[in-house]
């Protein structure tokens, strides 16, 4: 058998096995995992909510498993403009690259400054007041 054909076949068999594995592999985010994620996201959740999220997030993760069917062996990820190159690997979505501008400070108007301060939830004089860290 021609080596190339053999490699091709091997690849497709492996891909198919992966597909079968993935479709059988039900992604389930446990309540404990959900709580850990909520902790990372800085959102307080109840036991009941954790249960609900566990189902909803598992459903969505099950749906996005579809991405494993896409063959991305020979392609790089889309890159932010500042890191983009013109090669196939790592292009910006519109082909833009290296957006630069002069590093110059432009003062905000007094109205804007006062507006920002007015939006502080708690303040002391013109300072944003926060709770103690510990």
């Amino acid at each position: 058998m021609n080596v190339q054909i053999f490699e091709c076949l091997k690849h497709s068999i492996i891909q198919n096995c992966l597909k079968i594995q993935n479709s059988k592999f039900l992604i389930m985010l446990s309540k404990e995992e959900v709580k850990k994620v909520a902790d990372l996201a800085r959102i307080e959740i109840t036991d009941q909510e954790a249960e609900k999220y566990s189902k909803e997030l598992s459903d969505i993760l099950g749906f996005v498993e579809k991405l494993n069917e896409a063959d991305t062996d020979k392609i790089g990820p889309i890159a932010p403009a500042r890191l983009a190159t013109q090669s196939v690997a790592g292009r910006h979505i519109t082909g833009a690259k290296n957006a630069t501008r002069e590093d110059k400070i432009i003062e905000a108007s007094n109205e804007t400054k006062e507006g920002i301060i007015k939006n502080f939830p708690e303040k002391k004089d013109r300072f944003d007041k926060v709770k103690a860290v510990f």
């Binding site: 990372l40 494993n68 991305t72 990820p77």
Partner: peptide, 24 residues
């Protein structure tokens, strides 16, 4: 929550990077 999970340690390559490749 979904995004925090997808970006959390150990899952970044599996989800976000994979998605950015499919985007390419």
């Amino acid at each position: 929550m979904l995004g925090t999970y997808a970006l959390s340690a150990g899952y970044y390559d599996q989800y976000y990077k994979k998605a950015q490749k499919v985007r390419s």
